[in-house]
Amino acid sequence: MNASGDFILQTQKLTKGFLGFIAVDSVDLNVERHTIHALIGPNGAGKTTVFNLLTKFLTPSSGTILLDGEDITAARPTQIARRGVIRSFQISAVFPHLTVRENVRVALQRQLGTSFHFWRAESSLNVLNERAEELLDLVGLLRFANDEVADMSYGRKRALEIATTLAMEPKLMLLDEPTQGMGREDVDRITELIRRVAKGRTILMVEHNLGVVSTLCDRVTVLQRGAILTEGAYAEVSSDPRVKEAYMGKSAA
């Protein structure tokens, strides 16, 4: 790792205030290309707000966001998505009344350029089925391709969400608590899946499960009350007394 680094995403003094309350305070985040980067911190530290700022679901009060060195602070959410920054959400982001295959296909569909064609038959989308099924196979959902998503288990919905995100050929995937609310088995499966799809990609994830963070992530940024507390490799960060204090309170430090 050299000093300048090859950063895919950088923020400079990123700040967001809500009516006198500073949710994100002057955050300088540097996400290196081809790494899995975790954003951790106690509840209310501003992790999801940072995600919303990065994908422009919220507008920053001040500061800049750079993607591949280019300023994207003024871009709209759709533009950010089209530049290859694809996010997931805390609650599972699937289309419940579409089939599993259609969920992935919707993400592939935009590239055909026919998404406004209301006079064209739906079967014109079948050319995308092969790619959709490849992605479903990758996350182990191929045999459910024709099922309606609403009936699936939570873990599978999250896997489907990852397949859909991959369909966008993302440069940078932002995963908001991918293992939240899951049983042990599902957590292991999703962890393994993230590791597999991370090859050749960059992932920034918010995660509460420190076990997942320790096995998966190359770098960890700890947020506390909207500001960066520390940043480094997991081993470094986890032995930092300030981090323990932030998580456990003073007595544990």
Binding site: A81, R87, A93
Partner: peptide, 10 residues
């Protein structure tokens, strides 16, 4: 089905 997700897909 899911507006924010559709936005995030571009």
């Amino acid at each position: 089905d899911n507006e924010p997700r559709a936005t995030s897909l571009g």
